[in-house]
């Protein structure tokens, strides 16, 4: 339904303007905030960038869950730095979204009351230290797969935000893999933790790319506008092809008995995740949806007096400065 609405919004615009706009995109030009753009382009971008920003913010929680239990000072510092990066990514992305005429506070309200979504992956619990490895390795790995092509997206501020973010993401994946490596080569219990983490995060990671969109009108329009650069299936395939050898190197087993190298396509055949689980999670029924949203709401509500206090102080200072002039 939504896809068709976007489509009709695009076609409701002045056809000449639309054609000129498309020609700029086809020529590889960047669209900047002050440029004319179709309403559908703007709306789709707000939704996509906003959701991405929310994912960075909610994504702090599953890893933040282990900061106070990190096993060494160095691991604690690395994890803190990583989660701090994610908050920074949220900030860059909210700034990019703001150039489209929506404020960070408005976007936040929409996250908090459930009108906007965030990535389904962050609704899964982190249960052992190995999950810090699996999240970095698989979740950041999948995020990078998604984000690298978006550096070339048509919207200037989004593209620039993605370039900054991608620089930091590869460090995230490496630190995750390094945790997995230590665990996989560690004691039998550590190895068991590593395998257990892979078992729980494999399919949710595959879901991060979204269901197949080869027949989606909405995706086709987004690809034309270079808001979306690859199909979900292409990205998922690339992710599997990259990750399976890494799992083998760790001596861990990907929890998919149908997994086979397919010489003809030069990639792996693999089992689809359970898409009904995905839709359940998106609808709010994942294992941690309630906690994640409650944590964000609590942070926001508990922080209201702080934001108000600091704004009141800034207003007093401005008034004093004006009076002095």
């Amino acid at each position: 339904m939504y896809a068709q609405m976007v489509q009709s919004e695009a076609t409701a615009e002045d056809p000449e303007k639309l054609a000129a706009f498309q020609a700029r995109i086809d020529a590889g030009e960047k669209i900047e905030p002050k440029d004319w753009m179709p309403e559908g382009y703007r709306k789709t971008l707000i939704r996509q960038i906003g959701q991405h920003a929310h994912s960075e913010i909610v994504g702090q929680l599953p890893e933040g869950n282990w900061i106070t239990r990190a096993p060494t000072l160095e691991r604690k510092a690395i994890l803190l730095a990583k989660v701090q990066d994610e908050a920074g990514h949220g900030l860059y992305l909210y700034c990019a979204a703001e150039t489209l005429g929506v404020s960070r506070d408005e976007l936040t309200e929409m996250l908090l009351d459930g009108r906007m979504k965030y990535s389904s992956i962050f609704n899964y619990p982190t249960l052992t230290w190995a999950d810090m490895g699996a999240v970095g390795w698989l979740v950041d790995g999948a995020a990078i797969m998604n984000q690298v092509p978006l550096q070339r997206t048509s919207y200037g501020p989004y593209s620039r935000a993605m370039i900054r973010i991608c620089k930091e993401e590869s460090f995230h994946q490496r630190q995750g893999y390094s945790i997995m490596m230590k665990m996989a080569q560690g004691t039998p219990v550590q190895k068991k933790m590593a395998q257990d983490a892979l078992n729980r995060f494999w399919y949710p990671s595959l879901m991060m790319f979204g269901p197949s969109d080869k027949d989606s009108v909405h995706s086709a329009q987004s690809m034309k506008w270079k808001i979306k650069m690859n199909t979900n299936d292409d990205l998922r395939q690339k992710f599997v092809d990259q990750t399976v050898p890494q799992a083998e190197f760790l001596g861990l087993t990907v929890p998919d008995e149908t997994l086979r190298w397919n010489e003809d396509k030069g990639g792996y055949d693999f089992a689809e995740p359970d898409w009904s689980e995905f839709f359940d999670v998106i609808q709010g029924n994942g294992p941690c949806n309630t906690e994640r949203l409650a944590a964000r709401n609590k942070a926001w509500d508990d922080g209201a007096w702080v934001r108000e206090g600091l704004m009141a102080h800034a207003a007093k200072k401005r008034a004093a400065k004006l009076a002095a002039e």
Binding site: Q60, A77, V83, Q84, G90, A295, A304, V306
Partner: peptide
């Protein structure tokens, strides 16, 4: 300070607190 991670009143404070903890 690291106990605040992800729960601060505003994003900039989350980043600053993590920085201090680090």
């Amino acid at each position: 300070v690291s106990e605040w991670c992800g729960h601060a009143p505003v994003l900039e404070e989350d980043i600053a607190l993590a920085n201090t903890a680090l």
